[in-house]
């Protein structure tokens, strides 16, 4: 008799992803779905998809979903949460969505300690539109809109969102993870679960930033992209917990 020790999580819709080969969006989708299965909350969860490569995320989860305008997912999530506070709300956003056009919505959801969970994929580039600079693109990074490399005197500095939001009193759990290795993938899963639990326990705003790859627009193979992430992104975006007040009674 064969026992299944690994299969597609139930909360993940059984449809193929449209993402490029080796794109880590798929890994994070699976982790979220596994956490939803484990916590048994699929029936009460509503996800908010961004505009960006993950715009079709509303097709990839079996829970109710809403598609938000570019950058507005934290505001849409606030509306859903305030409408039915017993629901569990997560947003799934890229770096352009969350740290460029949606910065105000992100900062204010955090400072309100809105009881939602944000999953923030940071791959330092705009993927869907073909590889333009993102607010998290590294200094010197070549993109469609920084063809000679990002220059500080022209495009300023990349934003460290986890550190920034951690300064806000309203932030309850902020952690930066990565899906570049099995160890880090498992840590990301545990962190996503902790963020959802923070929300379930009504302890306020939680965000998990996940360093991710974009093989197509980085111009690297999926495996090379993992190396590039380790060698270039991790030094500027150190992994770790930046805020955690979920232990005591908030």
């Amino acid at each position: 008799m064969m026992e299944t020790i690994f299969e597609r999580p139930k909360a993940l819709a059984d449809v193929p992803f449209h993402y490029c080969p080796g794109c880590t969006h798929g890994i994070v989708h699976r982790l979220i779905a596994e956490v939803i299965d484990e916590l048994g909350i699929e029936g009460d969860t509503i996800g908010v998809a961004p505009v960006g490569c993950a715009v079709f995320a509303y097709n990839y989860f079996n829970c109710d979903m809403q598609e938000a305008a570019h950058g507005r997912a934290p505001a849409v999530a606030t509306g859903i949460k305030r409408a039915n506070p017993e629901n569990i709300i997560f947003t799934y956003q890229g770096d352009g969505d969350l740290a460029a056009i949606g910065t105000a919505e992100t900062v204010h959801a955090a400072t309100r300690s809105e009881n939602i969970t944000i999953i923030f994929l940071n791959n330092a580039i705009y993927g869907m539109t073909g590889g333009q600079m993102a607010p998290t693109s590294l200094v010197g990074q070549v993109t469609q809109t920084t063809p000679y490399g990002r220059k500080v005197e022209m495009q300023g500095y990349p934003i460290r969102m986890s550190e920034m939001l951690a300064t806000l009193e309203g932030s309850s759990f902020i952690k930066r993870c990565s899906v570049d290795s099995i160890k880090n993938i498992n840590d990301t899963r545990a962190s996503i679960k902790k963020a959802f639990q923070c929300q379930i326990d009504k302890k306020g705003f939680s965000m998990v930033e996940v360093l991710s790859t974009c093989p197509t627009n980085w111009g690297l193979s999926p495996a090379e992209s993992m190396d590039w992430l380790r060698d270039n992104m991790m030094p500027y975006y150190p992994l770790g917990v930046y805020k955690d007040v979920t232990g005591g009674d908030r």
């Binding site: 507005r72 505001a75 849409v76 999530a77 509306g79 859903i80 105000a104």
Partner: peptide, 26 residues
Amino acid sequence: GTFLQAESEVAAINMVYGAAGAGVRV
């Protein structure tokens, strides 16, 4: 009920979008 002063009119209308999508009068 819920009254929330948003950070901008842009955020406010998107909160309306979320709440309306969740089925409440908003």
